[in-house]
């Protein structure tokens, strides 16, 4: 069987600065009330003394290659589309929460009707050739949605240069670019 190009949602943690715009743009796009959070920006504190800093990581569905939620679902309500998107057929969900216990990322959400729903990578937009709402809006351009190959290329372009420039060492040695 020909495997379609796998699409992923990639978060660039070096860029996410914790504004949380992805959370409300997602609510609006998916018409969600308070309750189910298809994505959530998490914060983690690292370092000590001078290296202390905040880190941010939006956690939408990871659309895992071998998705534990799909395996765990006893009713077959979850499946992985050919392009890699993990989708829920809410009509088949009985609300047993097995997917939530299985998901290492805490992604499955339960709306007031008790059935699971989660990030769909905005398939309705993908299928029309536009980016998921969070990726399209991210003010820090930290959310990418593309094939692994393309994302790899974008990241190399982003960070390749920095390596050669060096943050500031050479300039401090008197070779100011001034």
């Amino acid at each position: 069987m020909e495997v379609r190009q796998q699409r992923i949602l990639y978060i660039d943690p070096a860029r996410c600065m914790g504004c949380r715009a992805c959370e409300t743009v997602c609510k609006l796009e998916n018409d969600l009330p308070a309750g189910p959070r298809y994505t959530m920006v998490t914060e983690a504190e690292t370092g000590e003394g001078e290296t202390e800093k905040l880190n941010f990581l939006p956690v939408p569905c990871q659309h895992c290659g071998d998705a534990p939620c799909v395996r765990a679902c006893p009713t077959g309500a979850l499946h992985k589309r050919e392009d890699g998107v993990v989708l829920t057929d809410r009509r088949k969900c009985v609300g047993c929460h097995e997917c939530l216990w299985a998901c290492p990322f805490g992604v499955p959400q339960f709306a007031s009707d008790g059935r699971m729903s989660k990030c769909t990578m905005c398939v309705h937009r993908l299928d029309e050739g536009t980016l998921p709402a969070c990726a399209a809006n991210c003010p820090a351009e930290a959310i990418l949605c593309d094939t692994v190959e393309n994302i790899s290329r974008i990241l190399r372009e982003r960070y390749g240069k920095t390596v050669f420039c060096g943050p500031f060492a050479d300039r401090l040695n008197g070779e100011a670019a001034r």
């Binding site: 395996r71 077959g76 050919e82």
Partner: peptide, 16 residues
């Protein structure tokens, strides 16, 4: 029962 149900879906593309 769960295994039988899962196996029944083995013709699906994403069957587990």
């Amino acid at each position: 029962c769960a295994v039988l149900k899962r196996n029944a879906e083995r013709s699906n593309g994403w069957s587990l």
